[in-house]
Design a protein around this nucleic acid. Structure first.
Lengths: 168, 168
DNA sequence: CAAAATATGTCAACATGGCTGACGTATACC
DNA sequence: GGTATACGTCAGCCATGTTGACATATTTTG
């Protein structure tokens, strides 16, 4: 019963370590989305609306196709929420400057206000976690998360890619 | 156009920094769940089934109520997926050792095999990210994620809490 | 022991947000 | 002038969350 072989022991540690990495992500995401969800529910919106508002706010002038690539959902799914946001005046669109087939999206003042309110919640949570963990930990956090992201999207996620709506 | 006031500049950096922290979580979660989702789809299961299988595998003998607390969903929602998993032979239950109202859940051999298959995908992803980032970064990753989790669940998420199904 | 509390399940109805497939329109490009 | 592209829409399906009400078995408590 004593003295497990080191190989076995290491395997156990490794599994525990990896499972913890998995679970932390689950719990963090679960709690991270809870705040905005509550605000959205009052407006008759859902998490999908938040994502659209967030990224349109983040990249004003973004094209529909770029939004689809970021969210990784179908245009029909996007259409439902984006249509609502357009009709209810949170998002506006105008034709692209050179290619008039494009719809360049941006937040209206109402949309900006909602975005601020929603994201403030998450920003505060991240800020608190950063403060508690320290600058070195933050670097590690970013490094590991970046490694979890599909290689094709790492540039975008790390902010080293040019913003989507460059050619305005 | 030159020389922004330091206050303004810092505010900008801070916002960028926090937004990046938010987005990394979004992208990582998006890509992290994609692999298992594909496997599950073939079996007619969804992400919810994975979560149940995962945590039952993680804590054999877990009670239904504990599972609800971890997942933060209603018993009706859980019932749907758990019922399927029970009927299709991935999960089994037996009465609690002292309190026979309880249903202690565990994976069947079939369930264990599916769990392995699903989680292996994520374990590999985490392992690769850990390897690429280094041990120090991993510490930071854990520290920050832990700070993002509701305080009530930090002990559980960090593995410092006793496993739910202790009294077997 | 009877009553209350607890652990769990179930039925029914509804909302959100994914998906596929098919088809339509406007604009750009060769 | 024909093809490709950016985007939209209609219709229907599925997974998974919700609320509310009620049922059953078992434990705890006065």
């Amino acid at each position: 019963m004593a003295d497990l072989k080191p190989g076995v022991h290491q395997l156990y540690l490794r599994d525990e370590e990896l499972r913890q990495g998995i679970e932390l992500l689950f719990y963090a995401y679960r709690d991270f989305t809870a705040g905005p969800d509550a605000i959205l529910a009052k407006l008759g919106f859902g998490r999908a609306h938040h994502r659209v508002i967030y990224f349109v706010g983040r990249y004003p002038g973004i094209r529909v196709g770029e939004l689809l690539a970021i969210l990784r959902i179908t245009k029909q799914s996007l259409s439902r929420v984006l249509g609502q946001l357009l009709r209810e005046g949170y998002v506006a669109h105008k034709p692209g400057p050179t290619d008039r087939r494009e719809r360049r999206l941006e937040l209206t003042p109402t949309g900006i206000e909602l975005e601020r309110q929603l994201t403030e919640n998450q920003r505060a949570r991240v800020a608190a976690a950063y403060r508690a963990a320290g600058a070195a930990a933050v670097e590690g956090y970013k490094k590991v998360l970046l490694g979890l992201i599909d290689e094709t999207d790492r540039a975008r996620a790390s902010g080293t890619a040019p913003p989507p709506a460059r050619g305005r």
